[in-house]
Amino acid sequence: MNGTWVVFRREVGQYFASPIAYLIAAALLLVTGLYFNADLTFSVGTKPAEPALIPLLLSFAMVFCAPLLTMRLLAEERREGTLELLLTAPVSDGAIVLGKFLSAWFYYTILLALTFIYQIILVSITQPDMGHTMAAYIGIWLYGGATLAVGILFSAITENQIVAAFLSIALLFILWMGELIGQIITNLELAEVVRQLTLIGHFTSSFAVGLIRAEDIAYYAGITALMLFIAIRVVESNRWR
């Protein structure tokens, strides 16, 4: 546990010490800000504010953001040789991977918290559906955790950051495609099953409409756990390969 905490602290420090993290945050705020304003202008006088606006945008944005946030976590350690030191330190491989994952998730949580400004603005000018929004935020938080775990896995597999990012973007994109799966697969039952396997399938029709379902939480927690487990095994494989 101590190891997880130490690795977590170092990685968080790393995030906030690097200008890249601020650039990503600023870019995200800019995009969500534009999106928010567009929706606001469109909604005024015609409809209530869309409660799941930002989470829905993020559900797509994370396909690209999560790999960017996680690609360096293990790939860089491997490339720079620091992984050798980490693995010979008296901490479990699980603690290393978990600490890194949690740091990425923490950074992501901060980003999410920043976008909450839009909700504050909405509260001050109208009466938004806060419960709905909270459900969507909880959903996108879990969703983000799962995408970050996917990113970590690919970062563990390769020592090339670009390859790691590319592979995880590819996988996340496929998992995101669930929303469009019906246009590819004409068999309704099959499409339904495929959709249940995708990340997005557990977001748009539950969290995004203000409904929290235990199965969706289990899905995201399960995907996250599975990805982390595999990532730990991959890191660990250094010891027995």
Partner: peptide, 9 residues
């Protein structure tokens, strides 16, 4: 089990 929590206002 269908455990859901309706958060909408």
């Amino acid at each position: 089990a269908v455990i859901t929590l309706d958060m909408t206002e």
